[in-house]
Design a protein around this nucleic acid. Sequence first.
DNA 1: AGTGTCGCCTGAATGC
DNA 2: TGCATTCAGGCGACAC
Length: 281
Amino acid sequence: MPELPEVETVMRGLLPVMVGNKIRTVKLHRKDLRIPFPLKMQEKLKNIEITALTRRAKYILVHFKDGKILAIHLGMSGRVLIVPPEDKYDLQKHDHMVIGFHDGAKVIYNDPRRFGMIFILNDDELETHKAFAHLGPEPLGNNFSSSYLKETLKNKKTSIKQALLDQRVVVGVGNIYACEALFMAGISPEMIAGDLKGKKAQLLVECIRDVLTRAIEAGGSTLKDFAHADGELGYFQHSFSVYNREKQACQGCNCDIDKTGGVQRITQSGRSTFYCPKKQK
DNA sequence: AGTGTCGCCTGAATGC
DNA sequence: TGCATTCAGGCGACAC
Protein backbone atom coordinates (compact mmCIF):
# COMPACT_ATOMS: atom_id res chain seq x y z
CA MET A 1 0.00 0.00 0.00
CA PRO A 2 1.49 3.23 -1.08
CA GLU A 3 2.82 5.33 1.74
CA LEU A 4 5.22 8.23 1.35
CA PRO A 5 8.17 6.24 -0.08
CA GLU A 6 6.03 4.48 -2.67
CA VAL A 7 4.34 7.72 -3.73
CA GLU A 8 7.74 9.38 -3.97
CA THR A 9 8.99 6.49 -6.10
CA VAL A 10 6.01 6.64 -8.46
CA MET A 11 6.44 10.39 -8.76
CA ARG A 12 10.11 9.99 -9.61
CA GLY A 13 9.26 7.32 -12.13
CA LEU A 14 6.79 9.65 -13.82
CA LEU A 15 9.17 12.61 -13.95
CA PRO A 16 11.01 11.74 -17.17
CA VAL A 17 7.78 10.88 -18.98
CA MET A 18 5.70 13.84 -17.96
CA VAL A 19 7.85 16.90 -17.40
CA GLY A 20 8.11 18.95 -20.56
CA ASN A 21 5.43 16.85 -22.21
CA LYS A 22 1.86 17.80 -23.07
CA ILE A 23 -1.32 15.79 -22.70
CA ARG A 24 -3.08 14.92 -25.93
CA THR A 25 -5.95 12.80 -24.61
CA VAL A 26 -7.48 11.80 -21.30
CA LYS A 27 -9.65 8.70 -21.49
CA LEU A 28 -11.79 7.81 -18.52
CA HIS A 29 -13.33 4.39 -18.20
CA ARG A 30 -15.66 5.21 -15.37
CA LYS A 31 -17.03 8.37 -13.85
CA ASP A 32 -15.32 8.25 -10.49
CA LEU A 33 -12.82 6.74 -8.10
CA ARG A 34 -13.38 7.65 -4.49
CA ILE A 35 -14.58 10.99 -5.78
CA PRO A 36 -15.77 11.89 -9.31
CA PHE A 37 -13.13 12.56 -11.94
CA PRO A 38 -12.79 16.29 -12.70
CA LEU A 39 -15.32 17.70 -15.10
CA LYS A 40 -14.00 18.09 -18.66
CA MET A 41 -10.63 16.86 -17.60
CA GLN A 42 -9.20 16.54 -21.10
CA GLU A 43 -10.31 20.04 -22.09
CA LYS A 44 -8.72 21.48 -18.98
CA LEU A 45 -5.36 19.77 -19.29
CA LYS A 46 -4.60 19.11 -22.94
CA ASN A 47 -1.86 20.95 -24.81
CA ILE A 48 -0.48 22.64 -21.72
CA GLU A 49 3.15 22.02 -20.85
CA ILE A 50 3.83 20.07 -17.69
CA THR A 51 6.48 22.03 -15.85
CA ALA A 52 7.13 19.93 -12.74
CA LEU A 53 6.10 16.99 -10.63
CA THR A 54 6.16 17.24 -6.87
CA ARG A 55 4.79 15.31 -3.93
CA ARG A 56 2.87 16.57 -0.92
CA ALA A 57 2.00 13.97 1.71
CA LYS A 58 0.73 11.01 -0.32
CA TYR A 59 -0.37 13.13 -3.26
CA ILE A 60 1.47 13.30 -6.57
CA LEU A 61 1.16 16.82 -7.95
CA VAL A 62 1.43 17.42 -11.68
CA HIS A 63 2.11 21.10 -12.32
CA PHE A 64 0.98 22.70 -15.56
CA LYS A 65 2.36 25.89 -17.07
CA ASP A 66 -0.95 27.72 -16.68
CA GLY A 67 -0.98 27.19 -12.91
CA LYS A 68 -3.26 24.18 -12.80
CA ILE A 69 -2.27 21.17 -10.76
CA LEU A 70 -3.45 17.62 -11.27
CA ALA A 71 -3.45 15.87 -7.90
CA ILE A 72 -3.25 12.09 -7.84
CA HIS A 73 -3.71 9.99 -4.74
CA LEU A 74 -3.14 6.25 -5.08
CA GLY A 75 -5.38 5.29 -2.18
CA MET A 76 -4.87 1.70 -1.19
CA SER A 77 -4.37 -0.09 -4.44
CA GLY A 78 -3.63 2.57 -7.04
CA ARG A 79 -0.91 1.84 -9.55
CA VAL A 80 0.62 3.86 -12.32
CA LEU A 81 1.90 2.24 -15.46
CA ILE A 82 3.99 3.88 -18.13
CA VAL A 83 3.61 2.72 -21.70
CA PRO A 84 6.48 3.91 -23.93
CA PRO A 85 5.61 5.75 -27.17
CA GLU A 86 6.05 2.82 -29.53
CA ASP A 87 4.41 0.14 -27.40
CA LYS A 88 0.99 -1.36 -27.90
CA TYR A 89 -1.14 -1.67 -24.82
CA ASP A 90 -4.31 -3.65 -24.20
CA LEU A 91 -6.53 -2.13 -21.59
CA GLN A 92 -6.57 -4.12 -18.37
CA LYS A 93 -9.25 -4.56 -15.78
CA HIS A 94 -9.40 -1.54 -13.43
CA ASP A 95 -7.54 0.75 -15.84
CA HIS A 96 -9.71 3.75 -15.00
CA MET A 97 -7.74 6.55 -16.62
CA VAL A 98 -5.42 6.61 -19.61
CA ILE A 99 -3.46 9.77 -20.35
CA GLY A 100 -2.01 9.99 -23.82
CA PHE A 101 0.89 12.37 -24.43
CA HIS A 102 2.06 14.22 -27.52
CA ASP A 103 5.11 12.02 -27.85
CA GLY A 104 2.94 8.89 -27.87
CA ALA A 105 3.66 7.77 -24.33
CA LYS A 106 0.78 6.73 -22.13
CA VAL A 107 0.31 6.89 -18.38
CA ILE A 108 -2.29 4.52 -17.03
CA TYR A 109 -3.96 4.72 -13.66
CA ASN A 110 -5.18 1.34 -12.40
CA ASP A 111 -6.93 0.95 -9.07
CA PRO A 112 -8.95 -2.19 -8.17
CA ARG A 113 -10.29 -0.86 -4.90
CA ARG A 114 -10.82 2.66 -6.18
CA PHE A 115 -9.83 4.33 -2.94
CA GLY A 116 -7.71 6.69 -4.99
CA MET A 117 -8.52 10.29 -5.81
CA ILE A 118 -7.81 12.48 -8.81
CA PHE A 119 -8.69 16.15 -8.85
CA ILE A 120 -7.57 19.48 -10.28
CA LEU A 121 -6.72 22.61 -8.36
CA ASN A 122 -4.81 25.85 -8.93
CA ASP A 123 -1.35 26.36 -7.57
CA ASP A 124 -2.54 29.19 -5.32
CA GLU A 125 -4.85 26.72 -3.56
CA LEU A 126 -2.14 24.37 -2.37
CA GLU A 127 -2.31 25.63 1.20
CA THR A 128 -6.03 26.21 1.36
CA HIS A 129 -7.57 23.35 -0.62
CA LYS A 130 -9.64 21.02 1.52
CA ALA A 131 -7.28 18.13 0.87
CA PHE A 132 -4.16 20.02 1.97
CA ALA A 133 -5.31 22.62 4.49
CA HIS A 134 -4.96 20.39 7.53
CA LEU A 135 -1.86 18.45 6.62
CA GLY A 136 1.02 18.37 9.06
CA PRO A 137 4.67 18.76 8.13
CA GLU A 138 6.58 16.52 5.76
CA PRO A 139 8.49 13.99 7.86
CA LEU A 140 11.64 14.52 5.80
CA GLY A 141 11.38 18.30 5.94
CA ASN A 142 12.90 20.76 8.40
CA ASN A 143 9.63 21.50 10.17
CA PHE A 144 9.39 17.99 11.54
CA SER A 145 11.45 18.03 14.74
CA SER A 146 11.31 16.54 18.20
CA SER A 147 10.19 19.85 19.68
CA TYR A 148 7.39 20.05 17.11
CA LEU A 149 6.34 16.47 17.77
CA LYS A 150 6.33 16.87 21.55
CA GLU A 151 4.35 20.08 21.34
CA THR A 152 1.84 18.57 18.90
CA LEU A 153 1.30 15.39 20.90
CA LYS A 154 1.10 17.16 24.24
CA ASN A 155 -2.11 16.19 26.06
CA LYS A 156 -3.10 13.77 23.31
CA LYS A 157 -4.70 10.72 24.88
CA THR A 158 -4.66 8.54 21.81
CA SER A 159 -1.93 5.97 21.25
CA ILE A 160 1.37 6.95 19.67
CA LYS A 161 0.62 4.57 16.81
CA GLN A 162 -2.68 6.31 16.09
CA ALA A 163 -1.03 9.70 16.37
CA LEU A 164 1.56 8.80 13.73
CA LEU A 165 -1.22 7.84 11.33
CA ASP A 166 -2.93 11.19 11.87
CA GLN A 167 -1.91 13.34 8.94
CA ARG A 168 -2.45 16.49 10.95
CA VAL A 169 0.49 15.37 13.08
CA VAL A 170 2.80 14.28 10.30
CA VAL A 171 2.05 13.29 6.72
CA GLY A 172 3.03 10.29 4.66
CA VAL A 173 3.35 7.75 7.45
CA GLY A 174 0.93 4.86 7.01
CA ASN A 175 0.35 1.64 8.87
CA ILE A 176 3.52 -0.09 7.71
CA TYR A 177 6.04 2.63 8.42
CA ALA A 178 4.34 3.60 11.68
CA CYS A 179 4.91 0.03 12.88
CA GLU A 180 8.46 -0.02 11.58
CA ALA A 181 9.44 3.35 13.04
CA LEU A 182 8.03 2.49 16.47
CA PHE A 183 9.90 -0.80 16.45
CA MET A 184 13.13 0.90 15.50
CA ALA A 185 12.67 3.48 18.25
CA GLY A 186 11.77 0.81 20.80
CA ILE A 187 8.48 2.52 21.63
CA SER A 188 5.31 0.57 22.40
CA PRO A 189 2.55 1.31 19.89
CA GLU A 190 0.14 1.51 22.83
CA MET A 191 2.01 4.27 24.60
CA ILE A 192 -0.12 7.36 25.20
CA ALA A 193 0.96 9.93 22.62
CA GLY A 194 1.08 12.72 25.18
CA ASP A 195 3.64 10.78 27.20
CA LEU A 196 6.29 11.06 24.50
CA LYS A 197 9.09 13.03 26.03
CA GLY A 198 12.77 13.88 25.88
CA LYS A 199 15.14 11.59 24.10
CA LYS A 200 12.35 9.24 23.03
CA ALA A 201 10.79 12.00 20.95
CA GLN A 202 14.10 12.79 19.29
CA LEU A 203 14.71 9.11 18.66
CA LEU A 204 11.26 8.64 17.13
CA VAL A 205 11.75 11.56 14.78
CA GLU A 206 15.07 10.11 13.69
CA CYS A 207 13.60 6.65 13.22
CA ILE A 208 10.68 7.91 11.13
CA ARG A 209 13.13 9.78 8.94
CA ASP A 210 15.43 6.81 8.70
CA VAL A 211 12.74 4.27 7.89
CA LEU A 212 11.24 6.49 5.19
CA THR A 213 14.57 7.47 3.71
CA ARG A 214 15.74 3.90 3.45
CA ALA A 215 12.45 2.85 1.86
CA ILE A 216 12.71 5.60 -0.72
CA GLU A 217 16.23 4.44 -1.43
CA ALA A 218 14.97 0.92 -1.86
CA GLY A 219 12.51 2.31 -4.35
CA GLY A 220 9.46 1.80 -2.23
CA SER A 221 8.06 -1.41 -1.04
CA THR A 222 6.09 -3.93 -3.00
CA LEU A 223 3.31 -4.97 -0.77
CA LYS A 224 0.72 -6.98 -2.63
CA ASP A 225 -0.72 -4.62 -5.19
CA PHE A 226 1.86 -1.94 -5.59
CA ALA A 227 3.77 -1.64 -8.84
CA HIS A 228 6.73 0.52 -9.67
CA ALA A 229 5.91 3.41 -11.96
CA ASP A 230 7.86 1.87 -14.80
CA GLY A 231 5.55 -1.11 -14.71
CA GLU A 232 8.12 -3.62 -13.52
CA LEU A 233 5.85 -5.45 -11.17
CA GLY A 234 7.50 -6.85 -8.08
CA TYR A 235 10.71 -5.09 -8.96
CA PHE A 236 11.37 -4.12 -5.38
CA GLN A 237 11.67 -6.64 -2.62
CA HIS A 238 11.48 -4.73 0.59
CA SER A 239 11.59 -6.54 3.87
CA PHE A 240 10.15 -5.26 7.10
CA SER A 241 11.29 -5.73 10.66
CA VAL A 242 7.88 -6.36 12.19
CA TYR A 243 5.15 -5.51 9.69
CA ASN A 244 3.18 -8.57 8.62
CA ARG A 245 5.54 -10.81 10.61
CA GLU A 246 3.19 -12.10 13.29
CA LYS A 247 4.75 -14.91 15.33
CA GLN A 248 8.04 -14.51 13.47
CA ALA A 249 11.31 -13.15 14.76
CA CYS A 250 11.72 -9.41 14.55
CA GLN A 251 14.79 -8.03 12.82
CA GLY A 252 17.92 -8.56 14.88
CA CYS A 253 15.98 -10.75 17.28
CA ASN A 254 17.96 -12.90 19.66
CA CYS A 255 15.20 -14.08 21.93
CA ASP A 256 13.67 -17.54 22.05
CA ILE A 257 10.72 -17.37 19.68
CA ASP A 258 9.21 -20.54 21.14
CA LYS A 259 8.98 -18.81 24.49
CA THR A 260 8.18 -15.24 23.47
CA GLY A 261 5.88 -16.01 20.52
CA GLY A 262 7.76 -13.58 18.29
CA VAL A 263 6.19 -10.50 16.76
CA GLN A 264 2.75 -9.75 18.19
CA ARG A 265 -0.21 -8.46 16.30
CA ILE A 266 -2.84 -6.29 17.92
CA THR A 267 -5.68 -4.20 16.57
CA GLN A 268 -5.74 -0.47 17.20
CA SER A 269 -8.75 1.42 15.88
CA GLY A 270 -9.47 -1.41 13.50
CA ARG A 271 -5.95 -1.50 12.08
CA SER A 272 -3.33 -4.15 12.58
CA THR A 273 -0.30 -3.19 14.57
CA PHE A 274 2.78 -5.41 14.60
CA TYR A 275 5.36 -5.02 17.33
CA CYS A 276 7.85 -6.76 19.57
CA PRO A 277 6.67 -6.56 23.20
CA LYS A 278 10.19 -7.26 24.41
CA LYS A 279 11.83 -4.38 22.60
CA GLN A 280 8.92 -1.96 22.59
CA LYS A 281 7.89 -1.02 26.09
C1' DA B 1 -12.24 19.96 19.89
C1' DG B 2 -10.68 15.51 20.34
C1' DT B 3 -11.45 10.83 19.73
C1' DG B 4 -13.42 6.62 17.92
C1' DT B 5 -16.07 4.04 14.43
C1' DC B 6 -17.87 3.21 9.95
C1' DG B 7 -18.07 2.84 4.92
C1' DC B 8 -16.06 2.88 0.62
C1' DC B 9 -14.11 -1.22 -2.62
C1' DT B 10 -12.07 -5.72 -4.75
C1' DG B 11 -9.40 -9.68 -4.48
C1' DA B 12 -6.73 -12.87 -1.77
C1' DA B 13 -6.97 -15.81 1.92
C1' DT B 14 -9.49 -18.50 4.94
C1' DG B 15 -13.57 -21.22 6.73
C1' DC B 16 -17.11 -24.63 6.37
C1' DT C 1 -14.76 -28.14 -4.90
C1' DG C 2 -17.31 -24.24 -4.19
C1' DC C 3 -19.54 -20.87 -1.93
C1' DA C 4 -19.50 -17.51 1.91
C1' DT C 5 -16.95 -14.77 5.04
C1' DT C 6 -13.02 -12.16 6.58
C1' DC C 7 -9.38 -9.12 5.99
C1' DA C 8 -6.47 -5.53 3.97
C1' DG C 9 -6.26 0.09 4.92
C1' DG C 10 -6.19 5.72 3.43
C1' DC C 11 -9.23 8.90 4.34
C1' DG C 12 -13.58 11.43 4.77
C1' DA C 13 -18.00 11.43 7.15
C1' DC C 14 -20.18 11.05 11.16
C1' DA C 15 -21.28 10.33 16.21
C1' DC C 16 -20.38 11.21 20.80
